[in-house]
Design a protein around this nucleic acid. Structure first.
Lengths: 340, 340
DNA sequence: GTGAAAGCGCTAACAT
DNA sequence: ATGTTAGCGCTTTCAC
């Protein structure tokens, strides 16, 4: 009745109250079925009266595992990660693991600190959804615990990865545009962003395969709104006939592209079609309604957890690299070219 | 050299290697200055050679504190929270606290589970940025540790809160619109969203103060894109002269409003001005460029941490409710009314 | 300045 | 089915 006492009840208090040993309390708390109904009820009652709550810290110490997975995100603001986390938490929770998320705002120093902290916390596995880590940091950490990279891969020996199949994604985009009748298709590159090179190569290969090599037009950009704006400006400044369709490296950059086009009075999709990549929640906004490529982000999170669990079960030594398949989401920014 | 051995080095291994007692190692690892330079170097060298990393679990057990703050978020997808977290992590980190984030996707059951887990983990303080928790859950948890609510308040005795001053925010919006010359100003309500009632009341009060009571027009909505769409549809279906400006309860709903207006060929801001609330990153996108009210989200996160630290220092018993001041961000969706 | 010893709250043999 | 015992890896008196 007096919750003001600072010391929380321990397993010993419960044992005393129930008149049993603390091992018995432990068994009951962990749901072991080898306890008689009578004693179990006794223990449960005592625990409830005392407001007992098991101490995960003590348990982790003796069990030498925390049932915690660490997740390091470069950037919480990118809606991409929020959905990966959804999948991670769901899959982890189902196996009795909790998730502890660290965000590092694109700062390498903060990344290293976050990594060290998680290792001191003795998380049982690590998910890195952050493109900046140096290979040596990854290699060092991989010696201490199971690790998986999301949306990036590396060839560090025991480090798994789950990435989306960017070449396929790019091919889906190109197929869609070509089927609509586009030939003069440009690409705004994603710079150093994860998967950007694959998307660009997919674009170039598709153009070649369709006999459109002469129309290949790649301008530099990045995975940011600004990157998309500059890309479109470069395209418009390039002279020659305007492309009838633009494949932009990701959604955020596609938004930048849309902004510039709107400012210039160039209508989408009547005058030019736009396709993004990622299908972030932005793309689905009615006011934006962007045709884009969906990466199954929750699936990617779930896969990452599955890889961790495999390793924890000791079922595997070699690195595994899971490739998830993207799909095209057709919305309102693509249409047949307006042959003027 | 053989990192394959499963057992990580402990403080005892380091002590043995350095030829000192484990207490000494402990002193060195914690940066105590009472150690001779000679021994310190010895210990540090031994630790480095072994790849020793302090075990936070063991430390937490004996110190009876984890230096961890828990954060429960209803929804990671809402960009509002991402920035609150930034402030939280910054302020907490500066005081040696780490943050562990749990997301609960708007599910009350998941909320309770997340809460229980964090309590078992023995976090030293809890930040709730989640509007759904029942008062009794909050009250129960508040007996076990310091707690602060973000973007919501409650009158549970020892529970602090940090919220934005919604009445002031609403007043800023109304002042802006009135100064532009608007009189026929409508409001799309935020339903049960946190702060929605205050925003609506602020709207109504401002209208009355300006002698615009006859033009008060509130339609139901919610903090979602759909809520904004329905709101505008209701407004347009209402008959009578169309409002020249609409104050929408939050940014996401404002986006819904913009979408419907665009579909109907109603130009913003020429035909109607739109104002949102929150200044989420969406609003700043060039393609959207929404006039809105900024809540200083990182500040709110920092304040939340400050409140927790105050309580941990035992400096306060009574609840404190911090109100942060919003500011108006004028962008491209507002202009003087087009008197036709 | 350094070491020895006790104990944080729990689990996991091992007994019984 | 239940109790006893010995730690988990660290911090913290308290001696020296």
């Amino acid at each position: 009745m007096t919750p003001t006492t600072n010391a929380r009840p321990t397993i010993i208090d419960v044992a005393a109250r129930a008149g049993v040993s603390k091992s018995l309390v432990s068994l009951v708390m962990r749901g072991e079925r080898t306890v008689s109904d009578e004693k179990r009820a006794l223990v449960l009652a005592a625990a409830a009266e005392l407001g007992y709550r098991p101490n995960a810290v003590a348990r982790s110490l003796v069990r030498r595992r925390t049932n915690l997975f660490g997740v390091i995100l470069s950037d919480l603001h990118n809606p991409f990660f929020a959905e990966v986390i959804d999948g991670v938490q769901e899959a982890a929770g189902a196996e009795g693991y909790r998730t502890i998320i660290s965000t590092v705002n694109l700062s390498p120093a903060a990344e290293q600190r976050a990594l060290d902290t998680l290792l001191e916390l003795r998380v049982d596995g690590l998910i890195l959804a952050s493109p900046m880590f140096g290979v040596q940091s990854i290699a060092a950490a991989s010696r201490e615990l199971p690790m998986v990279l999301v949306a990036r891969r590396s060839d560090v020996p025991r480090v798994d990865s789950v990435t989306n199949d960017d070449p396929t994604g790019a091919r889906l985009v190109m197929e869609h545009l070509a089927n609509l009748g586009h030939r003069r298709i440009a690409h705004i590159d994603g710079g150093r962003g994860a998967g950007a090179a694959e998307r660009r190569e997919g674009y170039e290969r598709s153009m070649a395969e369709r006999g459109l090599a002469e129309f290949v037009h790649v301008v530099p950009g990045s995975y940011t709104e600004e990157g998309g704006r500059h890309g479109v400006e470069a395209l418009l400044a390039a002279g020659g006939p305007r492309p009838t369709a633009i494949f932009v490296a990701n959604d955020l950059a596609a938004l930048g592209a849309l902004a510039v086009l709107a400012e210039r009075g160039i209508r989408v999709p009547q005058d030019v079609s736009i396709v993004g990549y990622d299908n972030t929640s932005l793309a689905a906004l009615r006011h934006i309604n962007l045709t884009t490529v969906d990466q199954p982000r929750p699936d990617m999170g779930r896969e990452a957890v599955a890889l961790l669990l495999e390793r924890l079960a000791g079922r595997r030594e070699a690195a595994r690299h899971v490739l998830v398949t993207p799909t095209l989401v057709v919305r309102g920014t693509t249409a047949p070219p307006n042959e003027g």
